[in-house]
Amino acid sequence: MPIGAISAHGRNEAAHYVMPLLGVGRAFMRVEIVPPGSATARLHSHSAVDEYYLVLSGRALLRMGSHELEVGPGTLIGKPTGPDLTSHLVTSLGESITVLDMEIWPDRELRSKDIVYYPDQHELLWRGEGWRGAQVFSSLSSAEDLFQHYDDGYVRQDDGSWRSANIPGTAPREPD
């Protein structure tokens, strides 16, 4: 493994991140070889991380939002932050691809809070300093429920339900 690089997610993979130790600041880059029938990552978006892909070799299918496009060597894909622009590369065309995956973080220490949205799995990943966890959509409550009961005393359960609670400054929530 080259100096200043770590394997992705601590796994034995054909991908290495080039870290800011090399002087690139908030940019984290890795070269990833993706075999046929696989993908660069789950279809996802970031709330705080800009992401770019440069296809170095091979052909793949780019899924970006609701669109699909065949891409090949020299294709540069830019994906700014935001929940509406999901993307990933799928090697469904019978060949592997080599991709330079670049992430631009708000800070060089990776302490920024970032919500990663995975629409295919109906999951959210909460990452950053003080945040560690994933949540499925079915455990989320509606914004209307939150605002209707904003001043009520209750605690949310892991399954998305709630229980009445004695919280200073709030009246206990009554069953709906």
Score class of each variant (00 low, 15 high):
residue 37 G to E: 08
residue 3 I to Q: 10
residue 103 E to A: 10
residue 115 I to W: 00
residue 58 G to S: 10
residue 129 E to P: 00
residue 28 F to M: 04
residue 150 Y to R: 15
residue 122 H to F: 03
residue 144 E to R: 14
residue 151 D to F: 15
residue 143 A to I: 14
residue 171 A to C: 01
residue 103 E to D: 04
residue 109 E to I: 10
residue 163 R to Q: 09
residue 82 G to V: 04
residue 96 S to H: 10
residue 157 Q to S: 09
residue 145 D to L: 15
residue 139 S to Q: 13
residue 31 V to L: 15
residue 70 E to P: 03
residue 176 D to L: 14
residue 19 M to A: 06
residue 170 T to D: 00
residue 145 D to W: 14
residue 80 P to C: 06
residue 96 S to I: 06
residue 171 A to I: 11
residue 51 E to I: 03
residue 122 H to T: 04
residue 88 H to A: 12
residue 153 G to P: 09
residue 65 G to R: 09
residue 110 L to A: 09
residue 157 Q to K: 14
residue 27 A to N: 12
residue 2 P to M: 14
residue 109 E to Q: 13
residue 89 L to Y: 02
residue 102 M to L: 13
residue 7 S to C: 05
residue 147 F to R: 14
residue 40 T to D: 06
residue 99 V to F: 08
residue 171 A to S: 14
residue 50 D to M: 10
residue 123 E to P: 01
residue 49 V to A: 01
residue 171 A to D: 12
residue 88 H to M: 05
residue 126 W to A: 08
residue 38 S to I: 01
residue 37 G to R: 04
residue 87 S to L: 05
residue 123 E to K: 14
residue 63 R to D: 03
residue 120 D to K: 06
residue 88 H to C: 12
residue 58 G to V: 07
residue 4 G to A: 02
residue 48 A to S: 11
residue 124 L to Q: 02
residue 80 P to W: 03
residue 152 D to M: 12
residue 118 Y to T: 03
residue 172 P to G: 08
residue 133 G to W: 08
residue 134 A to Q: 10
residue 51 E to P: 02
residue 33 I to P: 05
residue 38 S to L: 02
residue 127 R to S: 07
residue 51 E to Y: 07
residue 26 R to K: 12
residue 133 G to Y: 10
residue 110 L to D: 05
residue 64 M to V: 07
residue 102 M to G: 03
residue 136 V to M: 11
residue 67 H to P: 01
residue 160 G to S: 01
